[in-house]
Amino acid sequence: MQAYDLSQTHIVTPAEEIALSTNQLQVYYGNSKHASMSDASLSFPRFQITALIGASGSGKSTYLRSLNRLNDRIARIKGEIIYRHTNINDSKVNVYEVRKHIGMVFQKPNPFAKSISENITFALKAQGITNRQELKQRVETSLKEAALWDEVKDDLNKSALALSGGQQQRLCIARAIAMKPDILLLDEPASALDPISTTKLEVTLKELAKNYTIIIVTHNMQQASRISTYTAFFHLGHVLEYDRTERIFQTPMIQATHDYVTGNFG
């Protein structure tokens, strides 16, 4: 692989209202002294889709999973994650609350081995919502928002594992938004899906961006350019460029970004 100058970066701060930002975020896995992610300082605009792109091992998933502190058990994370004027990367912060506001959808669909409706109600019940009417309502709204309602409305008591991959992934999105989060993190949500399911998912995401701030990790550059407003390019554990999506894809400032988006990378 060609060696790029990792100190040369171009990172903008969006003019829009900021929903979440990180300041000098560093991630160290296990006891490693080597940072898997170094000094990432990014600000994510509210009610927009931001895409994180980069090759495998560039640190984009590592970064994303740190945002809702899902890496807590396996990594040490330094630096600040600012959400609602609070640094949530702090041992005093209630991590369970954080995750209620910052939801996540994973690369491989991971529905619970429960019925479709229980998949959505399980976490709600744990929160103390017991009113049946309200639970029913939430199931319906979230499934509609995730564009799954019409396909499953008659099978709500069937096992979620019997759904197709694309349906499972949209169920996972419904499960996440049923919690009424602020921010939705998506870790390559389409990588296990066929093209038709992927298109459906992208339409759903664009629709969701009206009410949620979305940060999505993707391998697929077309996907990033189709759905996102801002794009960050990750390389070897560094963020090299962050700007509006069209600028990243049309007039990138950094050589590495240019090579990556034009397919001359590596």
Partner: peptide
């Protein structure tokens, strides 16, 4: 039990 099930639970803010 696959780890993805634990992640799914954690990501929803469950203890």
């Amino acid at each position: 039990v696959p780890n993805s099930q634990r992640e799914a639970g954690s990501a929803l803010g469950l203890s």
